[in-house]
Nucleic acid binder design. Structure first.
Length: 182
DNA sequence: TGCTTGATTAACT
DNA sequence: GTTAATCAAGCAC
């Protein structure tokens, strides 16, 4: 099984495996990249998931092929990015909640307008890396926005953040080694 | 056509 | 700990 086949599994299995993968975005301004250190799983059989009530115009990418991006607007002002997992026809994905910045840090600082907390939240990392709705449905194996597989980091599983339903599921995964560096 | 809802962030007290 | 900012999409009428 190659690294990309991992994404064909269910989101709660994939989410911890993505810790340690690198997310890279090349733009005209330059390259930004970071190591994924925090994720959350969302599954069609999960009341907290956008895909729970079936496919619609917003969540359609979650029902598409694994390894593509699902980007949506949150609270009217932020973008959040998911990596779609599982087979087509079943809506699920992994929310990227935090990165450890590795490349293009000055560019991230410029986009964020500050020198700390560059990628320590789902809305922050999309701002730092200039990810938005135009990447919705994009294949994350292809430039300019792509993932580089790495062996998984050690992690801690905890309940998810900022949701109203199914709060008890320990489907948030935080990398142990780098959590302080975010 | 109008109402409701967020998988958030940052700046307050 | 509390709250404002801000808007696309779903869904009820």
């Amino acid at each position: 099984m190659n690294a990309w086949d991992i994404l064909e599994q269910d989101a709660p299995l994939v989410a911890p495996l993505l810790l340690g993968w690198q997310l890279v975005h090349d733009t005209a301004e330059g390259r930004t990249a970071g190591i994924i250190i925090e994720t959350e799983a969302y599954h069609q059989d999960d009341p907290a998931s956008h895909s729970f009530n079936g496919v619609n115009n917003r969540n359609a990418p979650m029902f598409g092929p694994a390894g593509h991006a699902y980007v949506y607007r949150s609270y009217g002002m932020h973008w959040c990015m998911n990596v779609v997992t599982g087979n087509s026809g079943f809506g699920q994905g992994v929310l990227i909640r935090a990165l450890f910045p590795t490349e293009g840090i000055p560019l991230m600082e410029k986009r964020r307008g500050r020198r700390d907390h560059l990628c320590s939240g789902p809305g922050k990392l999309t701002q730092a890396m200039d990810i938005s709705h135009i990447h919705n449905g994009h294949d994350l194996r292809e430039p300019p926005l792509f993932l580089i597989p790495y062996p998984s980091l050690g992690y801690t599983a905890t309940p998810r953040i900022g949701i109203a339903k199914a709060k008890e599921k320990p489907w948030r995964f935080v990398a142990q080694e780098t959590r302080i560096l975010a």
